[in-house]
Amino acid sequence: MAAAAAAGAGPEMVRGQVFDVGPRYTNLSYIGEGAYGMVCSAYDNVNKVRVAIKKISPFEHQTYCQRTLREIKILLRFRHENIIGINDIIRAPTIEQMKDVYIVQDLMETDLYKLLKTQHLSNDHICYFLYQILRGLKYIHSANVLHRDLKPSNLLLNTTCDLKICDFGLARVADPDHDHTGFLTEYVATRWYRAPEIMLNSKGYTKSIDIWSVGCILAEMLSNRPIFPGKHYLDQLNHILGILGSPSQEDLNCIINLKARNYLLSLPHKNKVPWNRLFPNADSKALDLLDKMLTFNPHKRIEVEQALAHPYLEQYYDPSDEPIAEAPFKFDMELDDLPKEKLKELIFEETARFQPGYRS
């Protein structure tokens, strides 16, 4: 834990890192770190609560700039109880001085990944967590956004079992017609939660990839272990087919990539493993919904509104309290091709509203 900075004593240090967030945020305490930044909790002297502050230093890398800009653009436009918001952003007053960006968010005690390492969940908890994931996802999908990296560590939890989806750095506007060349190379989302079509096709992607990830998360809540822990690309596919069985001819016809289709045709026939054999203690309604989410063919996979209306979630289902976005989200430009200098300018502009004396 960093010592509390005395008023006016300059930035606090946390594990050798400068955290320049005073005077409003003090009493910093280390939480963890990701690929390009550290997260601390801090005391907000204005709202009198502890908050989470993520320090991001992305400006050396085009990919990190892209992810940072995506996350900020999306989260500043989203407003939903099951999606983490941005409360404040701290950065230098000029673009030349801006080396880091500090993002202030609600402090959540833990995440689903940490929880599943230590606790076996009751059916009631599984049901409530799944409902909140789908409630947040309904809003995301209504904005025409794909999260693309749903996994237990991106689901934040607090002691009252509130759940918030975080990390929109890989999110995209849904565009089933656009052929994202190089899709697989830039697709760094965790393999275990990846839909089979991501490994088999490169053309376009749809909201059904997020539903697949939610199915993987439900299976993990039922058993405290990942359902498809593939060691590499082909191993991942083999794990999936080992449980779902061989795809039907109709399902194979959806695979545009001939090499991928021929690979699947070359494999020995596998039978589907019954879900109640894998999860003998699970609620039968939970397994019915799991089956509809972990469907090989993305066109037959359940959609988020149908999933919310499934009998497993009937005690929570309330369409009048499951809000959607006001308007579909649009990125003005494809960020993939922009140089990091341009992305830095866009991050600077996007964060201006939090600067003292800002006038829109």
Rank of each mutant, 00 (worst) to 15 (best):
H61P: 13
I227C: 08
I211Y: 07
F78V: 13
K330L: 08
A6N: 01
E334K: 14
L346I: 09
Y316I: 04
S246G: 02
P58C: 12
K48H: 13
L157A: 04
R359C: 04
P196S: 09
R15G: 12
H125D: 12
L184E: 10
T295I: 08
M199L: 15
R50G: 00
L264Y: 03
E96S: 04
P339L: 12
A352M: 13
E71Q: 02
E186W: 01
Q249P: 09
Y193G: 10
N257H: 09
E334V: 14
E326M: 07
V304K: 03
E326W: 05
G37Y: 12
L155P: 06
K55P: 13
G16L: 06
G10K: 10
I347K: 12
M199P: 04
K231N: 13
A219L: 05
R353A: 04
A327N: 02
G245H: 06
H310C: 04
A92G: 00
T160I: 11
L234H: 03
I227Q: 01
E303D: 14
I72Y: 08
I95M: 07
S122V: 01
L267R: 00
K272H: 03
Y312T: 09
R277L: 10
S29V: 04
F168C: 03
Q97V: 11
M293V: 00
V51K: 12
N257S: 12
Y193D: 04
E33C: 02
I126L: 11
L294C: 14
E250H: 02
Q119A: 13
P229Y: 03
H239F: 11
R277G: 12
E81L: 06
S223I: 09
M38C: 13
R359L: 11
S213L: 09
M98W: 14
D235G: 00
D100T: 10
S142A: 01
I198S: 08
R172V: 01
I89N: 13
R50I: 13
L121A: 02
Q119D: 01
A309K: 08
E334Y: 09
I240P: 04
S122I: 12
R15M: 15
S29P: 03
N154L: 12
S29N: 11
I133Y: 05
I227H: 02
L241P: 04
I31N: 15
L163Y: 03
G37H: 10
D336I: 10
S246H: 04
G245Q: 10
D288Q: 06
E314L: 05
A286L: 08
T206Y: 12
Q66E: 13
H180F: 08
V214P: 04
I133G: 00
G16S: 10
L112R: 00
Y131G: 03
I211F: 14
T110Q: 03
L116S: 10
R50Y: 11
D100H: 12
I347V: 00
F19C: 12
D106F: 05
N123C: 07
V51R: 12
Q105D: 14
I103S: 11
C216A: 11
R135N: 03
G136H: 01
D332I: 09
E350V: 14
K285G: 10
G182F: 08
R15V: 08
R77N: 06
N238Q: 05
M108Q: 00
I72S: 12
G215R: 12
L155G: 01
T181R: 10
E341I: 02
S223N: 10
K203L: 11
Y25K: 04
V104K: 01
L237F: 05
L163Q: 15
D175N: 12
Y131C: 00
E326N: 02
V46F: 14
L150R: 00
V51Q: 13
R79Y: 04
T110Y: 07
D124V: 13
M293R: 09
E220F: 14
D288M: 02
T68K: 11
D167L: 01
P319F: 05
Y131P: 04
A327F: 00
P268S: 13
L289M: 13
G8M: 01
N144C: 09
C161N: 01
Q97K: 14
Q62M: 13
C65E: 11
L237S: 07
F168G: 02
T26E: 14
K114N: 15
R50D: 12
N154E: 08
G22W: 06
I209K: 08
E186D: 12
P176D: 08
H232Q: 11
E96L: 11
D100W: 12
Y25V: 02
E220D: 13
K259D: 01
K114T: 11
S248C: 07
N224G: 10
